[in-house]
Design a protein around this nucleic acid. Structure first.
Lengths: 207, 207
DNA sequence: TGTACATCAGTGAACGCGCGTTCACTGATGTAC
DNA sequence: TGTACATCAGTGAACGCGCGTTCACTGATGTAC
């Protein structure tokens, strides 16, 4: 919202602007909670620069959005990597990862929308950077599932990837509904997320 | 896409246009798969009328969108009401309802987006018609859960509504992910949905 | 040490576009006398 | 049975808006001689 003009960068330091653009875009997304608020003019204004200056670092708007999304995927990756690190057993760790996932989504709802709720590009193309990062974060869940299977907490009739996909879908559902229907009478969001993760854990556990 | 002009309605029959508008809007959504394609001009053109004519029946664009969404909620309600009617037991019926839910979402992805993945209005207002319809459809799931509890298939430590919410979240996750990330290597979508519903059913079932 | 010059990091104005919406109007259809 | 009139179901042109993007430019900064 501040409108002061940024001092021009020195020779060779133009690349600083790139980071400032991404930060501004990300903050704009968090603060307004509306993807449409992320216009080139708004981003540029927040940085203290004019809109065409953004083209010095990005070929078009879409690539700015994708860079923001990609950074958010990295963040989620870190969250999942550390979640439940000190859990008593891997099945508990799995639940902790589920809770952390939803917490991330609720903390950054508009980023989460960008990451997981956007309309896919109509052209069937290569996986984007963002999609690859998604897979990277997903890896932590697959590993935990495999660990559960290794110690006999989950049986081995299905692959870790298949099981992790099912879990992902379930927690994504919680995250997405809480974001899209915040006024729905869920009772407490925390209760919903623990209920779902517990239901999943029970459904997977060996008897 | 056809451009022929529609014959003007006779006196007193202007209300026919309302239905035509809703049908056109709904078809446009299905065919293009893009909410942005649903512009007043596009809808009007498809009906064979000029854009201002839409204001004869709707105060603004938003109320057209909401009417389309509301109709879709009614459809989903019907789907859930009849799904798994001939299941062997209520727990199986619950799974059938889950599958039917996802099938609906996949058959009408853009309608599903409107219903469940849209940004909520910033003003915290009364529940919309659409939201009330959502509750109506949700009722069928709550009933099935209650039935399961009545016959001892699910234990009674939690309320039917709480359990149904958890189930809704889980299947919503499947639907939403399949819509938003269709190119992700899920394996077969059907496999994913049965895996999730089975996991949930097992997680809820009494031992 | 001074000066001409290339380069870099931007600016400012403008473009075309599609959008929701408004407004004054028109012309066929039915009604009253 | 004929005619004036009100009403209804639209039309056509225009509005202002914000958007992504382009383009010619400027002026400070560093470099070569």
């Amino acid at each position: 919202v501040s409108a002061t003009t940024r001092a021009r960068a020195r020779r060779g330091e133009g690349a600083q602007l790139r980071e400032l653009i991404l930060t501004a875009a990300s903050e704009l997304l968090s603060e307004t909670g509306r993807e449409e608020a992320l216009s080139l003019r708004a981003v540029a204004h927040r940085v203290g620069v004019t809109a065409p200056a953004l083209y010095l670092h990005f070929p078009d708007k879409e690539s700015i959005v994708e860079a923001v999304s990609s950074a958010a995927f990295d963040e989620l990756d870190a969250v999942l990597a550390s979640a439940g690190a000190n859990a008593a057993d891997p099945l508990e760790r799995l639940q902790a990862q589920g809770c952390a996932y939803v917490a991330f989504a609720r903390a950054r709802p508009e980023h989460y929308r960008l990451m997981f709720m956007r309309r896919p590009p109509t052209v069937t193309q290569q996986p984007t950077d963002a999609e690859l990062s998604a897979v990277a974060g997903f890896r932590h869940v697959i590993d935990t599932v495999a660990h559960c299977q290794a110690v006999g907490l989950i049986d081995r009739t299905e692959t870790p990837t298949a099981i992790a996909s099912a879990l992902w879908a379930a927690v994504h559902g919680v995250a997405a509904l809480l974001i899209a229907k915040p006024h729905f009478p869920w009772g407490s969001p925390d209760a919903l997320v623990t209920r779902v993760t517990r239901m999943c854990a029970r459904g997977l556990a060996t008897r």
